[in-house]
Computed example of a mutant assay.
Amino acid sequence: MLQIDNLRKTFDGTKSERRSRVVAVDDLSLRVEEGQMFTLLGPSGCGKTTTLRCVAGLEHPDRGEIVVGDRPLFSDKRGIRLAANERGLGMVFQSYAIWPHMNVLKNVAFPLEVLPRSKRLPKKEIRARVERVLAVVQLEKMADRPATNLSGGQQQRLALARALVMEPPLLLLDEPLSNLDAKLREEMRFELKRLQRELNITAVYVTHDQVEALAMSNRIAVMRDGRVEQVGRPREIYERPSSRFVADFIGTSNFIDGTIESHETGDIYLVGTPQGRIRGSSSADLPVGEKVAVSIRPEYVDVQKGAAPTSDVVGRWSGVVQTRAFLGESVDHVIRVGELELRARCHPSLSFPPDTEVTVTLQEKMCSLIPVGE
């Protein structure tokens, strides 16, 4: 559906910057399949919004190619540069950008009413399409209400309806939930996901919120400094990060420095660390002696009261609880093992006070090995 190849976008640097151009998107390539919710995730300044604006036609890339379906929107090699209003894409902005002087119905109808006369639909058909879209976003009973009298969640749905009414081949969403409070934002995640699946919408979603990306996406591209660090399904990104940056950015992770001692079976390696040996997995071919970081999420660190009866069991160590925090659905413990501090996330029924001796067991299937420097 969407193909981006070798996209590059630079901006003028400030006077204090030595470089004359600042690279926002650096040779980026992506493919979004039809019907996917594809998320660009990363910290501020990583290039995710610039990439989205290049697809929308709101920024002009320096080079590369952007194709939606079989229709090229931009190609420096072929001399193609369609304006934003010629691309036929839907876009929902962070600020919603609804018209305050119009009611709900007129806000949604506006994009259809300003089309060139040759492409404009009859008034009756415009009305029917608007009513159909309002029903989809559950605003049909508010059609005559002034747009300014809507709640934040209703305004978000109105902005979505205005984008959907054009029946675009691709929907672009630029952090549309960031202005909502936490509870409403969680509700709207499920609402957006429901609409996307029911209508089989192909969408590119930009966010810096890791939970949002994991909850809503079919695939995620984690970006850093204008480049894609890793692309994959949410569970793959979370459980099998390909770099320390991805593991650190997506949620919380423990990092344990070690050295490859042996390659066991398949993608399983035995790693030596100052705390003891661990088994972990990697799709890369790691030679004996290579330095790695073992990444494991806190929820995959099991905790039992009492010191380990023996110290030679792989991935099972004795430690002492340093502190704990009750988080509602879980209790986080910080446990010192030698010079290492491990975070373990336990069921709320398990809570060990500070100075308690415990045994930690690292679930080896959930230990990912990341070569040092990646």
Rank of each mutant, 00 (worst) to 15 (best):
Q3S: 15
N254I: 06
V68M: 09
T259F: 06
N85C: 12
S368I: 11
P309K: 09
T50E: 01
A247K: 07
D267T: 12
R345W: 00
S262Q: 13
V104P: 01
S253H: 02
V67P: 04
M223I: 04
Q322R: 13
K15Q: 14
E290F: 01
R19I: 15
N6C: 13
K106A: 13
K124L: 11
S351D: 07
A293I: 02
R162Y: 06
Q196K: 06
E198Y: 10
L158I: 07
S29G: 10
E212I: 03
S253C: 07
R71T: 14
R244V: 14
I237F: 07
S243Y: 04
Q36H: 15
R345M: 08
V211W: 14
F190T: 15
E212Q: 09
V314G: 02
Q304F: 09
P241Y: 00
S118A: 15
V32M: 10
N103Q: 11
V358R: 00
I370H: 08
E264Y: 08
G226L: 00
E167P: 03
G79Y: 00
L7W: 06
N107S: 09
M1F: 10
I201F: 13
E374F: 06
L362R: 03
F74E: 02
S20P: 09
R219F: 10
N6E: 11
L177K: 09
V23K: 01
D144F: 13
T273C: 04
A308Y: 03
S281Q: 13
G251T: 09
I220H: 03
V372I: 05
D26R: 00
K119F: 10
V246S: 07
I126G: 08
R71M: 10
V313H: 08
M142C: 11
F255P: 01
D26L: 05
E364N: 09
G226K: 04
S318I: 07
I250P: 01
N85H: 12
R279V: 07
L369F: 04
F93G: 11
E33N: 14
V313C: 06
S283L: 14
Q363P: 05
P168Q: 00
L170Q: 10
T207F: 02
V288A: 07
K123E: 12
E131K: 11
G280L: 03
S242R: 01
R345D: 01
M366F: 10
M91N: 07
V92I: 10
Q3D: 11
R157Q: 07
I4H: 04
R18V: 15
L164Y: 02
I256W: 01
Y96S: 05
T49F: 04
V331A: 06
H60P: 11
S281H: 13
E140K: 14
G373P: 09
V360F: 05
F245S: 08
R297L: 05
V321N: 02
G276S: 08
L40E: 04
T49W: 00
T252L: 04
A109M: 05
E140S: 11
C46W: 01
P168T: 14
E341F: 14
L192A: 03
R19H: 14
D332P: 08
P298I: 02
G319L: 00
R18I: 13
T273A: 06
